[in-house]
Design a protein around this nucleic acid. Structure first.
Lengths: 96, 96
DNA sequence: GTAATATATGAACGCTTGCTCAACTATTCA
DNA sequence: TGAATAGTTGAGCAAGCGTTCATATATTAC
């Protein structure tokens, strides 16, 4: 199947969003519902800065969405495609 | 959902295999059936060396499998999970 | 107002990645 | 055998990525 260069790039960008262990773990936590940056950082044993940087990328890809409440920012998954991709990948890893 | 560090890394590696436009295009061509390295290189407008390097990574991930015939090496997809991931990603890109 | 908290941002650094180029192996043909 | 073909491999390099660190912004508490 011929694939245009543009769509190849878009596909690659899509999968790139899931191509880092930190981002995968962020997404795995957000599967349970929204969570603040500090809590994510604590659970992942990462600095808030590192988490914030990753969330920025995920936000730009429309993978997550932010909700501001006071001085906290809660993030949640923005797209159920993400969850589908994640679960299919996990299935492959677990008994592929 | 808690995700072990190991599985996070494995998932990230899985998606990394699809996180480059050249590899995505290689896979898109192999969806139609097996193809030699030279033909792939020609269709993708890449050098055989570059294609071969990418195929090596895809081979190590068990995404593709090689069949040697004379001095040619034909590659094909090794796993239908790959095709599923690819199609789901494409769906997201095309009307997400 | 000031201090403290929660997050975002930019620069810098080290690591990874995908390519090119040259050299190499393996196979076919004469 | 020697030349040509198909592919692989390793080194090297430029570009990209993920982190840390320092600084900035926004909000709340006093």
């Amino acid at each position: 199947m011929k694939l245009s260069e543009l769509k190849a790039i878009q596909l690659a960008e899509l999968f790139s969003a899931l191509s880092d262990a930190s981002r995968v773990r962020i997404i795995s936590l957000l599967l349970d519902g929204e969570m603040g940056v500090g809590t994510l950082a604590e659970k992942l044993n990462m600095t808030e800065s590192a988490v914030s940087h990753q969330l920025r990328g995920l936000r730009q890809m429309r993978f997550v969405r932010a909700r501001k409440a006071g001085r906290q920012v809660f993030y949640r998954l923005d797209d159920d495609h993400v969850e589908k991709l994640y679960r299919m990948g996990l299935e492959h890893v677990e008994h592929g």
